[in-house]
Design a protein around this nucleic acid. Sequence first.
DNA 1: CCTACCGATCGGTAGG
DNA 2: CCTACCGATCGGTAGG
Lengths: 199, 199
Amino acid sequence: MARTQAADYDDRRKAIMATAARLYALHGFLGASIAQIAAAGETSKSLIYHYYPSKEDILFDVMDSHVQGLVETALAVEAGSEEPRDKLRRLARDLMEHYEGAQSNQKVLLNELGNLPVDRRQDIVDRQRVVIDVVDRLLLAIRPDLAQDRPRRRSLTMLFFGMLNWTHTWFDPAGPIKSQTIADDAAEMFLSGLAQPQA
Amino acid sequence: MARTQAADYDDRRKAIMATAARLYALHGFLGASIAQIAAAGETSKSLIYHYYPSKEDILFDVMDSHVQGLVETALAVEAGSEEPRDKLRRLARDLMEHYEGAQSNQKVLLNELGNLPVDRRQDIVDRQRVVIDVVDRLLLAIRPDLAQDRPRRRSLTMLFFGMLNWTHTWFDPAGPIKSQTIADDAAEMFLSGLAQPQA
DNA sequence: CCTACCGATCGGTAGG
DNA sequence: CCTACCGATCGGTAGG
């Protein structure tokens, strides 16, 4: 009988990635060693290097698999039929839901981009850019007067992401506040702050 | 004549701290070696260890000297005579000004807390807490109906800090947008989002 | 005799 | 999948 280990190849790889994500999030990419990841996953360094050519390749996988989900979420919301303000409210909720379901990946995505080799870094930045651009287009639909002011739009958009992305430093899904409440509050602040064109 | 080199003790120490702050911000605490810090400052490792007992002590100094300024800023604004909403607007401006003037320290403060030994970490967390509590009290003054809902207030407060603190990832002081504009936008979003008590 | 500082190297541990 | 290692570099310290 042929060896069937390839059958659980994806599962093993995902398990390694999940353990790495947890330790990268906890100790930082440089602070978490391959030996620690192996021990935490009850395997060996050799096994890890069988599935990944390098420590940085695991990091890329942790980030890329996560950011791809964010891109899908953002594009799905944009493709809907709601009005721009409602799309933004929904996007806040869906992104927060994604963050909550992959906290380690999210932390790693936000904190460890600098530890990725330059060429692979661009892939991640490009995908993040897609998500940011969705918000930029929603903002433009809400505030057409900002059509000529790209820097200002970018600045306002980043305030929106600031509210959502900063949650990785303080939000506890097990606590009294739900991620949906946070998403709704962030969306309301953003939208009501946009309501009046300022001088 | 007695040696007078001790006269520039503080200057040398500050120079080491500034170089360390820059490299810690750029490469991360673990990614920046004492040797690199020495080379960048055109001195030697031995000189650095004459001024600091360990790499972590430099990290603590980078964070503590910065967060102390933030505490002073926040308490000064709170002690003023403006109404709560104006205090919050001013606080956003003053904090952003502080961030802009110490970008490396701010990045290190936000990213490297986990690399501080646990006992010294608490000192920094306590000081950050003072700044957060100022916003919590301003929020309470603006929305007295949230007096019994501490978790919600904490959550709203952290959305405010999210907008400001996330700037370290994208804001370029040399770009077309001024930090004051960002501060004003963030304060307006926060205040207008707070205006209507939600269901 | 002290403080300030240098060139060289220590014991351990990292990723691979 | 393990043990035994490597070249390099780490934070920290020696003598003078």
